[in-house]
Each structure stands twice: as structure tokens, then as C-alpha cells.
């Protein structure tokens, strides 16, 4: 059950990767990478359950936080032109 779900999510991430590569603008790419990041969080949780090692959830938690940080840093750069 978890395997099938994980494969579906990986395929969905592959579709989004197409948008990240093609994306006419930088914003599209950031959006796509943000979506890949959220899919990664789910995938990590699922892998933890596949291996019956639920402590992988800690990585998922860290990921959910970090994904947000990278997006916000990028947006700050786009709006202000610098980061500091």
C-alpha cells in the first residue's frame, strides 16, 4: 500500500519537474520546486512507514521547515534585490 502511494507521488514529482525545467519564468521554477519540496515531505514520511522506522519523520519535519526558508529567501531577493 505504501509502496504504491510512494510511486504515485514520485511520478507526480516527475511531472512537476518538467515544469521546473521548462518554466518560462523563474517564478514558475520556484513554484515547482516548492511543490516538489512538499511532495518530498510526504515521501519521507511514507518511506519511514515502508521501512517501519518512523523516526524518519524528524527529517520530514526539518524538510517542511527548510523548504519554506529557501522559498522565502528567494522571494526576498526578488523583491528587494538583495538579501541583507
Amino acid at each position: 500500500m505504501f509502496d504504491v502511494a510512494a510511486i504515485i507521488i514520485v511520478l507526480a514529482a516527475a511531472l512537476v519537474l518538467y515544469r521546473a525545467i521548462r518554466g518560462p519564468m523563474v517564478c514558475d521554477r520556484v513554484l515547482a520546486v516548492n511543490v516538489i519540496g512538499t511532495k518530498t515531505v510526504v515521501l519521507l514520511a511514507l518511506i519511514g512507514f515502508i521501512y517501519k522506522r518512523p523516526y524518519f519523520l524528524d527529517i520530514a519535519l526539518v524538510y517542511a521547515l527548510i523548504n519554506f526558508i529557501a522559498t522565502i529567501a528567494f522571494l526576498k531577493y526578488r523583491e528587494m534585490g538583495r538579501l541583507d
Binding site: 519537474l17 521554477r29 515547482a32 520546486v33 518530498t40 515521501l43 519521507l44 518511506i47 523548504n67 528567494f74
Partner: peptide, 17 residues
């Protein structure tokens, strides 16, 4: 840079596996 961010995300799944 952004694509490399996606690369890192996927690399971490590989490490986890």
C-alpha cells in the same frame, strides 16, 4: 540554483532510502 535545490531535495530521499 533553484534546480539544484530540487536536486538536493531528491538526493535527501535517496540518502533516506
Amino acid at each position: 540554483t533553484i534546480i539544484l535545490g530540487a536536486y538536493s531535495l531528491i538526493m535527501a530521499i535517496v540518502w533516506t532510502r
